[in-house]
Computed example of a mutant assay.
Amino acid sequence: MLAKRALSIVGGLAVIGWPFAVWLALSYPKLHILLPVLALCFVLRLCALRGKTGALSRAFKGLAIAGAVLSLASIWMREAQLLLWYPVVVNMVMLALFGASLWSKQSLIERLARWREGDLPPAGVRYTRRVTQVWCIFFILNGSMALLTCLAGNIHWWTLWNGMVSYLLMGALFTGEWLVRQRVKRRYE
């Protein structure tokens, strides 16, 4: 249990620290030694997710594989620029996951809400569907910016967007949604 928890922490840190490790590896050629470390972190993340089921777990496993593949391909091809594409892949996978759930009986956010809250009233179902749509818009915009930073080829702009701005926007969206949810819950209680 402790080993699995440690694997989860290392893998999570790899995901959060990815932009800065990539910046270091691209800015300082002597630090290309980080590439095998990044690959290992993603492999450890994949190991930590072993045995977990569900769409979200499958998406996280796919992202761990994508991170490891990009790291290994960068080592093999001696082209660290491939690492820049990971945030684009993340946004595409999350958009596909959230977007596909809009075509199912329950949206992803509704499933998460039911897991925490139990049964939802019709207003709660409508609200969770709307939140899922908002996240889809976020992934489209954030992924587009991640793509633009890749194409621009400026590692400083790439790191700023993918290592800070996107996380701040995500945090603002989480916080804003939580505040709105509290008002919506009070209105229907």
Rank of each mutant, 00 (worst) to 15 (best):
L70W: 02
W103T: 12
A64H: 04
S74L: 05
R58D: 13
M94I: 15
V69H: 05
Q106M: 11
T53P: 04
L95K: 15
Q81P: 05
L72E: 03
L95M: 15
S107F: 05
N91P: 08
L95E: 08
W115G: 08
A59K: 06
T53N: 14
L83V: 06
G51D: 12
M92K: 07
G99Q: 03
S74H: 03
V93D: 01
L56E: 14
R58Y: 12
K105M: 01
A80D: 05
A68V: 02
M94S: 11
R114A: 13
Q81R: 15
A66D: 04
S101C: 10
W103H: 11
G54M: 10
M92H: 07
R114Y: 12
L95Q: 13
V93Y: 02
L95A: 10
L83G: 02
V90P: 02
L70T: 00
A73S: 10
L108W: 01
M92A: 15
L56V: 15
L49A: 01
L83R: 02
S57E: 01
L112Q: 13
R114N: 09
L108Y: 03
L49M: 08
L84D: 01
L82M: 11
L63S: 01
L108K: 03
A59Y: 06
L49P: 03
V90M: 03
V93Q: 00
L102C: 12
S74Q: 04
S57G: 00
R78N: 14
V90G: 00
A64P: 04
A73P: 04
Q106S: 10
W85C: 00
L112S: 11
I65P: 02
L95W: 15
A80Q: 02
A113D: 09
L82P: 07
A80H: 03
S107Q: 10
M94D: 06
E110I: 12
A64L: 06
W85K: 00
G62V: 02
R58V: 10
I65S: 08
M94Q: 12
A100I: 11
I109M: 11
R116V: 08
S107T: 13
V69E: 00
V89Q: 05
W103Q: 13
K61S: 15
K52L: 13
S71E: 07
A80N: 02
